[in-house]
Amino acid sequence: MDWISALVQGTLLGGLYALFAAGLSLIFGVMRLVNIAHGDLIVLAAYMGLSTTVMLGIHPFVALLIVIPAMAGAGYCLQRAVLNQTLGDDILPPLLVTFGLSVILQNALLEGYSADPQKLSAGGVETASVQLGGLSIGVLPLLTFLIAVAVIAGLQFIFYRTAIGRAFRAVSDNADIAQLMGLNKAHIFGLAMALALAVTAIAGILLGVRTSFDPSVGGARLIFGFEAVIIGGLGNLWGTLAGGVILGVAQTLGAKVDPGWQLLAGHVAFLVVLAVRPNGLFPRVAH
């Protein structure tokens, strides 16, 4: 029963990892940009949540109404002011610029909030649980997982059913020709980053409610998100959810054996997938 419980918890944890991964996957899909600062942006969102909840005295979930647009706006500006200039055939500029951004964010947060661990307080929902077939399942992890599913379904809808999603795919296919269709790629990339950081805002708030955080934890969030993307297969959002679940399950099962093995087990699962299926478990089928 313990093992089944660990399995369920790992699956639900995978929802959070899928949220870390979704933004990463989205911007890579649209503009082939790998954002090293992604984890730090998740942490930034958590701190934004902290400031809004403390200042306005509101619930973290209500704070989303402020943090999501704030992060989206920041994403749009960041893309247009800085990141668009790095895009091209050379992979060095985007990597090194986002790496610099990561260091800046981390230290700015350190300066503003100190290194003390913080946590978002969500009240009763944190400890509430439901009984399901003899298993006690936390409401918060369950909610996180359901939000992850909803977010990925939403992204899937935007990508394949809306005009802006069509524009994302067109610019990703061939930015020059997309310009001929009247699409300003600088603007489209800005919108993609805005959408990615809106998802990041959700991920950051849920992270902050679930565990304590400090300015240094961004790197690990980037790695979890990245592992979920690679396990699931590049360019497949549902695959990313599956990748997150596999990572979450590996971590909780590892922790069950020995608490010190939690993170190691996740990395090992990633390396095994990389060794056996380098394109991930569910790569996007080529048209």
Partner: peptide, 15 residues
């Protein structure tokens, strides 16, 4: 655009 269907290719032209 290879990622777009025939109809989507046309629609994006009208965008």
């Amino acid at each position: 655009f290879p990622s777009l269907s025939v109809e989507e290719n046309l629609l994006i032209g009208g965008q």
